[in-house]
Computed example of a mutant assay.
Amino acid sequence: MNFIKRLLGLICILLSVAAAYFCIMHFGLPKFNSGKQDDLVFGIIILFILTPLIVSGLAIFGYFALNGEYDKNKM
């Protein structure tokens, strides 16, 4: 079970890298080039609020799972 938790930690770290790429390249930056004010506000929210929250949450959870902080015998 501890091996599965550590494997899921690695998967969470990889998901955080993928989420950072997609949030920046596909959701955030293209909104700046559209020229509409609604898209500009949405792009700012995606880039400066949601992306750091999503990426840091996944990365921290993955880091702790990879280091064994969630193991049953860890006291």
Results as ranks from 00 to 15, higher is better:
residue 40 L to Y: 15
residue 31 K to F: 05
residue 56 S to K: 11
residue 21 Y to L: 13
residue 28 G to K: 01
residue 31 K to N: 14
residue 74 K to C: 05
residue 36 K to D: 15
residue 20 A to H: 09
residue 18 A to C: 10
residue 67 N to A: 12
residue 14 L to D: 04
residue 20 A to Q: 11
residue 41 V to T: 13
residue 15 L to R: 03
residue 57 G to N: 09
residue 11 I to N: 05
residue 13 I to P: 06
residue 70 Y to P: 01
residue 71 D to H: 13
residue 57 G to K: 03
residue 29 L to D: 01
residue 61 F to R: 07
residue 68 G to R: 03
residue 37 Q to K: 13
residue 56 S to W: 06
residue 15 L to C: 15
residue 16 S to Y: 00
residue 75 M to D: 12
residue 54 I to N: 03
residue 13 I to C: 09
residue 75 M to C: 10
residue 14 L to Q: 06
residue 30 P to R: 04
residue 41 V to C: 04
residue 9 G to K: 00
residue 72 K to H: 12
residue 63 Y to H: 08
residue 59 A to K: 03
residue 51 T to G: 00
residue 68 G to Q: 07
residue 5 K to V: 11
residue 53 L to M: 14
residue 29 L to T: 03
residue 38 D to F: 10
residue 71 D to F: 09
residue 59 A to G: 04
residue 19 A to T: 10
residue 11 I to K: 08
residue 60 I to L: 15
residue 11 I to C: 07
residue 31 K to H: 06
residue 53 L to Y: 08
residue 52 P to G: 06
residue 49 I to K: 04
residue 3 F to D: 14
residue 60 I to Y: 14
residue 31 K to W: 02
residue 55 V to P: 00
residue 59 A to F: 14
residue 52 P to C: 04
residue 57 G to R: 01
residue 53 L to K: 06
residue 30 P to Y: 01
residue 40 L to I: 10
residue 53 L to S: 10
residue 12 C to Y: 10
residue 45 I to T: 10
residue 74 K to P: 02
residue 29 L to N: 05
residue 46 I to D: 02
residue 64 F to H: 13
residue 24 I to R: 04
residue 19 A to R: 05
residue 42 F to H: 02
residue 39 D to M: 05
residue 21 Y to C: 11
residue 60 I to A: 12
residue 56 S to A: 15
residue 22 F to N: 08
residue 67 N to K: 15
residue 64 F to N: 11
residue 42 F to V: 00
residue 55 V to Q: 00
residue 12 C to H: 06
residue 73 N to P: 07
residue 65 A to I: 03
residue 14 L to R: 03
residue 42 F to D: 00
residue 10 L to T: 05
residue 20 A to R: 05
residue 60 I to K: 11
